[in-house]
């Protein structure tokens, strides 16, 4: 992928609480495309986004975002780089003491000196893009889960970022809300020319909108390519994940001692 990569990870090692999350992971995320990062729960998908955003530092390895070596950036440079990033958190992470309008206006007010009428126009345009212009005066506690994520999405594109990261955007959404989010992610990417990174374990939705996907397990990339390439991947682990099979290379049972011994039947029968 080389120079067309907006984000590039090389041999990234990261451990937390004595557990190795990433063991030399390498990955290129192409510019201007939707990339889905998938994998079973607990494999460190959200951690990967935090490493890209500089909220966590790797033990070793290189993480480059738009040419900047993120772990080596000074605080000011890191905060400046983050203004080019938007992130949609799993919970939405709206500020509970601010209205929908003020939530979307927040990054604009902090980072620009625009006059109030211009801020109003930008906020309403962003809310219009997610279909919630009419909800501007509501408080976050009055929103449904799907609406919360759409407002959070409007907030994350308020400053017209180059990169947007979605952390499990489909989790816990009803089919309509999920369909709305899928459409928004695809439309925003094409209309704004964004680089989108989508972390999810919803295979169908993710593969339906991504240009490129990779599957992470045991701290490494076990399969990557276009959705078609992944569907035809020869790895049993990739196929088990894509097809949702309960047992396979990733075992159904958590490692335990022999059942006969554990139930106290050993030698007595």
């Amino acid at each position: 992928m080389g120079s067309s990569a907006y984000i590039s990870l090389e041999n990234v090692v990261f451990s937390r609480s004595g557990r190795r999350i990433f063991d030399g992971i390498s990955l290129d995320i192409p510019r201007g495309k939707v990339t889905a990062i998938m994998g079973p729960s607990g494999t460190g998908k959200t951690t990967l986004l935090k490493l890209i955003g500089g909220q966590l530092r790797p033990d070793s390895g290189s993480i480059r975002v738009d040419g900047h070596e993120v772990p080596r950036l000074k605080r000011t440079a890191l905060y400046a780089l983050r203004q080019k990033m938007g992130m949609l958190f799993q919970s939405g992470a709206l500020f509970t003491d601010l209205s929908v309008f003020e939530n979307v206006a927040f990054p604009i007010r902090v980072h620009t000196n625009l006059p109030e009428d211009m801020i109003r126009d930008i906020v309403l345009m962003k809310l219009e893009a997610v279909g919630l212009r009419g909800a501007r005066d509501l408080m976050p506690s009055e929103l449904s889960g799907g609406m919360t994520r759409r407002v959070a999405l409007a907030r994350s594109i308020a400053l017209d970022p180059e990169l947007i990261m979605y952390d499990e955007p489909f989790t816990g959404q009803d089919p309509i809300a999920m369909g709305v989010l899928v459409k928004l992610i695809r439309d925003l990417n094409s209309s704004m020319g964004l680089t989108s990174v989508l972390v999810s374990h919803d295979v169908t939705e993710s593969l339906s909108i991504c240009h490129f996907a990779c599957i992470i397990a045991d701290g490494k990339v076990i399969g990557q390519g276009t959705p078609e390439e992944l569907r035809a991947h020869e790895s049993e682990r990739v196929q088990q994940f894509l097809q949702g099979q309960p047992d396979g290379p990733v075992p159904f049972h958590y490692p335990a001692e022999d059942a006969t011994t554990d139930f106290g039947l050993g030698g007595k029968v």
Binding site: K50, G53, Q55, R75, Y79, A80, R82, Q83, M85, G86, M87, F89, Q90, S91, A93, L94, F95, T96, F106, P107, V110, H111, A152, L159
Partner: peptide
């Protein structure tokens, strides 16, 4: 509720 994290990711300390 990740409000502090989201602030960091918006470039706000």
């Amino acid at each position: 509720t990740e409000q502090l994290s989201s602030m960091e990711m918006m470039g706000v300390d």
